[in-house]
């Protein structure tokens, strides 16, 4: 058990503790979604070992944690590039260029959806509605940073910024 806990650094564990405190004492499992995000932020992606570490820390069965990690789209169960770009191609975004923006990024990076550039820098994902349809085209960078109105010039600038 201790060996598994050692796998997440103390900063991550402090953050997880803060999430656990939001729920009734007998409902630690409620913190699993936040804990997986914290673990993913630290490790870059969620390996079986990382999932087991989260399970150990929250007193859950590893399979129960895996069920959560595999159900929600933004957990990465495979390694991703340093920058994961997720482009919304749903209808409201597509009307204002979401699909075209995705095509543009594909062409710029020479990769398709669910691929990573050979230098390991970028992974491209197709996203579903991010709830920002008025700002289309919309992209997420590493799940947490939303970029709005992504026309060719803005995409060029974003890609250049990512080092």
């Amino acid at each position: 058990m201790n060996k598994q806990n050692d796998m997440l650094n103390s900063d991550s564990l402090t953050k997880i503790d803060r999430e656990v405190a939001k729920y009734p004492a007998d409902q630690k499992q409620s913190a699993v979604m936040a804990a997986l995000v914290i673990a993913q932020d630290e490790k870059g992606w969620l390996s079986q070992e990382t999932i087991a570490a989260v399970a150990g820390y929250l007193g859950m069965a590893p399979m129960a944690v895996y069920e959560v990690a595999s159900f929600y789209n933004m957990y990465d169960l495979q390694p991703v590039g340093k920058y994961k770009l997720t482009v919304c191609t749903n209808l409201p975004c597509a009307l204002s260029g979401g699909v075209h923006a995705a095509d543009y990024v594909k062409q710029k990076l020479g990769i398709d959806f669910n691929e990573t550039t050979s230098d390991g820098k970028f992974t491209l994902k197709e996203g579903e509605c991010m709830g920002a349809c008025g700002d289309a085209p919309v992209m997420l960078v590493n799940n947490k940073r939303m970029c709005s109105f992504m026309l060719p010039e803005q995409i060029d600038r974003l890609l250049a910024e990512c080092n």
């Binding site: 939001k22 409620s30 979604m33 936040a34 159900f71 929600y72 789209n73 933004m74 957990y75 579903e128």
Partner: peptide, 10 residues
């Protein structure tokens, strides 16, 4: 009152 976030599931 607390905030809980989703992680991508309509």
């Amino acid at each position: 009152l607390f905030a809980h976030h989703g992680w991508g599931a309509y």
